[in-house]
Design a binder for these strands. Structure first.
Length: 735
DNA sequence: ATACATACC
DNA sequence: CACTGGTATGTAT
């Protein structure tokens, strides 16, 4: 018993601890807060041979200890519905971890650990052999972008702690970050952390204008830049450096200076080799991932600085060794906890637990973690292309509504907005997904696929209504609609069919992708991410809000006082595979009982809600035996045992898994168009007919240029581009 | 095909 | 006081 008690209390406290941490926000740890930040800086110094500043130990400038900050945040949210929901999620996660550990123990029991380790070591060798250090990849991002733009227009804010945003902060000034104030944080909590905090409204148009200027500069260094948000991008500066006889550092220094000249805003950059032949599978969204290393590096020097990771395998692995796993793109709060549960806190820890990861590939993503350990990421950089878009949607949060009429009114508004966005951007789609969030913060989605193409508000509204109707009674705080299975209307219709036809023939294109505006210019420079909208002027900008940087708070400050940093990084995404591991789901209801789920948690009635939860919990047992499935099923439902993600299957002990084949990773196929290797060869531009000595990437950039020049619509361009990238590539290979 | 969770900006 | 909005992906059924 005693033992039990102990364990129990331990667990309870742990839960509390994780909950408190979770409440601190999703970006905590990502970039640099406390310990993490110090660690990174230290690693940086070690790796770069930079003298360890004395300030190190101390001073990070958080006015308060991160622990205290977390406590203040937790206290401020305590009792709220949001808090209760987080608590529920935290509990579910804890339960999930418990199951995973149990599974791990069973798997390890009869396993020949030594043999597995040897196997994994082989995989590592193969991955290492694929490392490509030939490309110079840079990740640049603006320091506290929104906040610094505001400073330009309101110098009085200089040196003061201020936050940008209304209900939720889109960003916080450097000074404010010292108090633990971060983007994505509700203003009332930010005020508790920093009573003197000044609040400033968002001025998206200004940010966009600046964004465009910034991107214009970046583009000069790599026409194929992959823009990742309105304030950051990935560039392959290999060609530029070569042509201008610059070292990577000189090039980046120059670029940052130019950005400053044009915008008076500072930027930070990370320079790394990257590479990766095949695996570039990831790519979260459009952007990214490219240089996981470059991105992580930009975090290091954050404020107005740049960090150059040595282009040497050994140095890279060392660099990764003490890097918090949380900094890796794709590792969020959940995966961080999952990994931590098996002992992995830093990238270097991955090696020690490689056998565990091997056995639990499904949950942790062996391939992903091995690449992370080695510091291998994709080094392919390319602009987002319209045809990559997979969904378009709109959603809105409002004060909780229980009235059907009012809810439908909101739905109609959303439908209207969505129709507008779709028409503005030339999209239509076949499946409509309704999303709603109860006042308890639980989120549900309901989807329906149609035989016809949907774009009109009437259709969107009707379908949304149909999906929502059976769910009542509900008390909602958010409602949204999203359309997937898209078709690009610009691709076909518009403009020059002739040209298009030409390209099509060239490429064989066909299937999926639909092009869109791609052209870089159009794309907007501005925010691509945001691009969808673009327009409607009606509501003024609502808040895009994203956390722009998340950041890190603090910074080293010392060093520079000047800038801020921000940042944090957001690292990218990539690694997706692994990341996804998670999955699990929860809640759900037994379908039998009520086909419809949710029932909101009506105000008072907790029962339902509770039911869900419990059900989930119940699921706990489970897992392995299949037999229980039935039971479970009838009880509640869901659960999914683990799943995660990813990747390489290789695992099972049985076969040697032949090692990770890069392509086998799920993602592999994804970037079909990626330019893979890229060797320079004479390639002919399908537009102007000139022969260029370049690689596919360079050719693409050139094509972009030609296209914009000829004023061909983006749509066409896209198809072209994609065609080119594919075909030529093959050609290239032949060489 | 649907539903859900996670991630990132 | 009260925790955004948009998109992508992976997994399970």
């Amino acid at each position: 018993m005693k033992e039990e008690n102990t364990e129990e209390s331990k667990q309870a406290s742990q839960e509390t601890e994780s909950l408190v941490k979770r409440l601190a926000g999703p970006s905590t740890g990502k970039a640099g807060y406390d310990i993490t930040f110090l660690t990174v800086l230290l690693v940086w110094c070690l790796v770069s041979d930079f003298p360890v500043p004395s300030l190190f130990p101390p001073t990070i400038r958080l006015q308060k200890d991160q622990t205290e900050i977390n406590r203040i945040i937790a206290d401020a949210s305590k009792g709220s519905k949001f808090y209760e929901n987080e608590k529920r999620k935290d509990k579910d996660l804890t339960e999930r971890i418990r199951k995973i550990l149990k599974q791990r123990d069973e798997a390890m029991k009869g396993a020949d650990i030594s043999r597995i380790e040897a196997l994994v070591d082989n995989m590592l060798s193969e991955l290492e052999a694929q490392r490509d250090l030939s490309q110079i990849i840079v990740h640049v991002d603006m320091d506290a972008f929104f906040a610094n733009v505001e400073l330009l227009y309101n110098p009085d804010l200089e040196g003061k702690p201020f936050g940008v945003g209304h209900g939720v902060l889109t960003t916080a000034s450097y000074e404010a970050r010292k108090y633990g104030v971060r983007s994505g944080m509700p203003t009332y909590i930010a005020k508790k952390l920093c009573p003197e905090l000044i609040l400033v409204s968002n001025h998206f148009q200004k940010y966009m204008d600046k964004s465009k200027q910034v991107m214009d500069v970046f583009r000069r260094y790599d026409p194929s830049i992959a823009i990742a948000g309105c304030d950051e991008g990935y560039l392959n500066i290999t060609p530029y450096c070569e042509e201008h006889g610059l070292t990577p550092d000189e090039c980046v220094q120059e670029m940052r200076s130019k950005v400053f000249e044009d915008t008076q805003l500072t930027a930070s950059a990370g320079i790394a080799p990257n590479k990766v032949p095949s695996y570039s599978s990831w790519c979260y969204q459009m952007l990214t991932q490219k240089q996981m290393l470059a991105k992580i590096c930009s975090d290091k020097n954050k404020p107005n600085g740049q960090f150059h990771l040595p282009f040497d395998a050994k140095a890279i692995v060392e660099f990764m060794r003490d890097l918090s796993i949380r900094k890796v793109p794709g590792v969020g709060r959940v995966n961080e906890r999952l990994l931590e549960s098996i002992g992995i806190k830093t990238c270097g820890d991955i090696y020690q637990y490689r056998a565990t990861v091997y056995l639990m590939d499904k949950q942790f993503g062996l391939g992903f973690l091995l690449r992370t350990y080695l510091g291998i990421g994709s080094n392919v950089v390319q602009p987002y292309q319209r045809e990559e878009r997979k969904s378009i949607g709109a959603e809105r949060t409002f004060s909780a509504l229980g009235d059907k009429e009012k809810i439908f009114n909101k739905l109609e508004e959303i439908a209207q907005e969505l129709e507008h966005d779709m028409e503005t951007n030339g999209w239509t789609g076949r499946t409509v997904t309704l999303k709603y969030k109860l006042d308890t913060y639980q989120v549900f989605t309901r989807a329906k696929s149609m035989d016809k193409w949907i774009t009109k508000k009437e259709d969107l509204f009707a379908i949304g209504k149909e999906l929502l109707m059976p769910e009542f009674p509900l008390r909602l705080r958010l409602i949204g609609l999203r359309v997937t299975k898209l078709k690009d209307l610009r691709n076909q219709a518009s403009s020059s069919a002739g040209i298009k036809r030409f390209f099509e023939s060239v490429k064989h294109d066909s299937p999926r992708k639909k092009p869109r505006l791609n052209d870089p210019q159009t794309v907007q420079e501005g925010l691509n991410i945001c691009d969808p909208e673009e327009g409607h002027g009606e509501n003024d900008e609502s808040m895009p809000g994203f956390h722009e940087d998340d950041e890190r708070d603090l910074e080293p400050s010392q060093h520079e006082a000047s800038d801020e940093d921000e940042y944090a990084d957001g690292e990218d995404k990539d690694l997706e595979q692994s990341a996804s591991t998670l999955s699990g789901k929860k809640t759900t209801i037994d379908s039998k009982q009520r086909p419809r789920p949710p029932v909101s948690a009506p105000a008072g009635i907790t029962i339902h809600t509770r039911t869900f939860t419990e059900g989930n919990d119940a699921s706990k047992n489970t897992k392995s035996s299949e037999s229980d499935q039935e039971e479970k099923e009838r009880q509640h439902q869901p659960r999914r045992v683990l799943k995660p993600a990813s990747v390489a299957h290789t695992s099972t002990t049985g076969k040697t898994s032949s090692s990770i084949k890069p392509s086998s990773f799920k993602g592999g196929a994804k970037n079909t168009r990626e330019r893979v290797a890229s060797r320079e060869e004479p390639l002919e531009c399908p537009i102007c007919g000139r022969t260029l000595m370049t690689d596919n990437q360079g050719l693409n950039a050139h094509v972009d240029f030609c296209l914009s020049r000829t004023a061909i619509r983006e749509a066409q361009a896209e198809s072209i581009i994609s065609s080119i990238s594919k075909k030529p590539m093959a050609r290239t290979t032949k060489r």
